[in-house]
């Protein structure tokens, strides 16, 4: 068996730099969205602002943050991730069905 291997790719300098930028940006965005969510809740408590709005706002922020992390940190954005992406969306679908269905129906019957 030949030990030599050049079949895989080592990213070149330019790629490394741009990838580093993207990944760090994702980190900054995550931290920013987190601060925004905590801030919104603190604000809502102190100002007595609409709590319904605060809830939908932070849930939206969570969804955005998760999408960011999945696509960038978990590399869904990269080539060859079609199948993982497909399963990611299937999971989103079943998750939504489960959570929404169960939540509403247990409220109605409660």
């Amino acid at each position: 068996m030949s030990g030599e291997s050049s079949t895989f790719k080592r990213p070149d300098r330019r790629e490394i730099r741009s990838e580093l930028k993207v990944q760090t940006t994702a980190f900054a965005v995550s931290i920013f969205l987190t601060i925004l969510a905590f801030g919104a809740v603190v604000y809502a408590i102190e100002q007595g602002a609409s709590q319904g709005f605060a809830v939908s706002f932070i849930i939206a922020l969570a969804i955005v943050q998760v999408a960011f992390q999945a696509y960038i940190w978990m590399h869904l954005k990269d080539k060859g991730h079609g199948v993982p992406q497909l399963f990611f969306y299937m999971a989103v679908y079943v998750t939504a069905m489960t959570v929404i269905g169960l939540m509403f129906m247990s409220w109605w019957s409660a």
């Binding site: 679908y93 079943v94 069905m97 269905g101 129906m105 109605w108 019957s109």
Partner: peptide
């Protein structure tokens, strides 16, 4: 298949909408 489970629970009393 993931949108039909309540047909096993029709008599639970989840209401006409569900």
């Amino acid at each position: 298949g993931f949108m039909v489970w309540v047909h096993h629970m029709f008599t639970v009393g989840l209401g006409p909408l569900a």
